[in-house]
Design a protein around this nucleic acid. Structure first.
Lengths: 197, 197, 197, 197
DNA sequence: AATGAATGAGCTTTCATTCAT
DNA sequence: GATGAATGAAAGCTCATTCAT
């Protein structure tokens, strides 16, 4: 299987690694190329420019997060169970992939991520949800319709559901403190208290 | 009072403005000096280097946030009221000071902020809380002791209490959507549901 | 005839077009290959390197100019008539083929053209004239021998005969002004005044 | 007098030298800086970018040519004498300053010079003549009004008057052949025959 | 023969920092 | 103290050329 080393992917992963560890400043194209084991010019065969590469790294990251969040998901389970599973999944995935977490934070607080957000606004809302929205939106929307969740706008529900988790992981990644699995569970349950009616 | 233009402060405020608006990329020392109305060399008389300056901008920002959160605070009010007031304050302060919000996000997700966090870990824990922790920690700690809040580690409580607010403000700043005052109120109340026992 | 698409010629013409329109800067080998409809590598099967290609473009251009100048030439006509015809021909050909004019100017004022000139100096003088000299030389030489023209060195006669025309065409190509056919005629006649004894 | 080495001028002269000798390709900013004896960054303190520098080199060159052409000019002398003096001056100046000639040719046949010409067209005609036109225009215009010259458009007169000289100098510069002073004189006189009624 | 992905030297430009004034 | 001209390392990107297919 495979065979071709898939240069494009190597470049994306090298960029992810370097940006996560050193920020955009610490990820010059020369280092990215070296880390990926390709020539500097090859980056520009696969991506229009550095910005384009970074957006593709984001998509790579987003897809992995989405996949992880849905791991072992049981669409028949009660809504609460479904949410707890997603929260738990997200927590553990980010903890085990601190680079992804680190990249995401860098991205969304840089001109790159901002311009991406801006572009998203131009797109039709439904399309945007479909492609972009991190699986969570659809789930929360349906739960809100079932009157299980508080009647709040979607961005608010998204924040209540996932922001504490992401913030916490950041602190844990930086080694500020540690969380045992039981506390993680209780944290996600607390988020549920914020969401539920 | 006043009289001296306080060059140091002018530089800090110029840096805050530029970084908030254009990111670290868009804030070269030459522009900061121009914006502050001082010579380029003068920055290095007041700060060891650019990194040092940026850390001082952070401190400036942090102090303003702390002050804003405590505005009109009634230490005698019920804990819930106290928290709602703080959440509300934070929300409105960040909304009305998008530059501070923007800077904070940039800072905490850049090598600058990370190295700051790393340094903080070296400091004595209690000292850190004293200097650093955004007033909220003391408040939450006492409320937890009174068994009003869930028995969770402080970083978890901090996340539940403030992360959704900060995330939401980011989206609002980017113009993704708008929040009326009533929804803000309900959002902070939802956070309280996550915190309370 | 035809049948083979003559890749070599396609490449030369693509290069001519691009260099004329965008200068040497705007004519990377990748674009030349694309414009010619061949693979990038194929250029190097037909030409040693880019410089070699450019010299061949020049030869292509030179041959076309020479042919055009001799159009409808009557070797029996009076010398003056012969010259006027040549001047007129040159003028109109360059006006109608601005790319050829544009390429020529680029070429003769670039390191490529200069090195070409240098090489020519090494060649035997008579051979050079035969191959290189734009038909005009032989004509002027014979007219000088007949004592119709001033007794000046050949390069001087060539300049008097053709330089004003070439310069004028450049200005016209750039759109600086326009020339009606009658003025062209009078211009060539003026050049004749410079040449004739 | 002097004292300051005038960095700006050093850069302009270094650029002139390198472009004249090696073409635009052979004049990277790094070499220009080295030749001028300044840091690479200093170029950008004095000029917006490389293009800006090149335009300034042109102005430097143009001013020197204009000055040289008017050397020992006697505005009271007969028109013919005045023209012969100008032609002679131009010839000798370019011969003695082959770099200026070489630069000029490069410039006017590059995107730089073309864009300059385009800009010139936008300017008011009279202003353009005043600032730009190489002294010759005013002279020829007045002579035409006095009915001494043929009644031809100004660009035509300019070509007849100066193009043969410039072309010849190019050949001489490249070492194709040599001209004694007497032949130069006769060449300029031949140009006069083209101009005069 | 023909291709075009891959390369890396070399380009223009920026910017944190220094230091003579 | 304060300045800002000068610097040069390092950045993003291009493109002539090669070579495995």
């Amino acid at each position: 299987m495979a065979g071709k080393p898939n240069k494009r992917r190597l470049i994306v992963e090298a960029a992810l690694e370097l940006i996560a560890e050193n920020g955009f400043h610490g990820a010059p194209t020369s280092k990215i190329a070296a880390e990926a084991g390709v020539g500097e010019g090859s980056i520009y065969r696969h991506f229009k420019d550095k910005e384009d590469l970074i957006h593709h790294v984001y998509e790579y990251v987003r897809d992995h997060v989405s996949e992880a969040v849905l791991q072992n998901h049981d669409f028949e389970a009660p809504i609460r169970e479904q949410y707890l599973r997603m929260g738990f999944n997200l927590f553990h995935f980010l903890m085990e992939n601190p680079k992804i977490q680190a990249f995401n934070e860098q991205y969304f607080n840089s001109p790159f991520g901002i311009s991406r957000k801006r572009e998203m606004l131009v797109l039709d809302r439904s399309k945007m949800d479909e492609k972009e929205s991190n699986v969570g939106v659809a789930f929360l929307e349906s739960a809100r319709e079932q009157q299980i969740l508080k009647d709040l706008p979607m961005p608010v529900l998204m924040s209540l559901a996932f922001a504490p988790i992401v913030y916490l992981v950041r602190d844990v990644s930086f080694g500020v403190f540690n969380l045992d699995s039981r506390t993680v569970q209780k944290t996600v349950e607390a988020c549920w208290d914020a969401l539920k009616r």
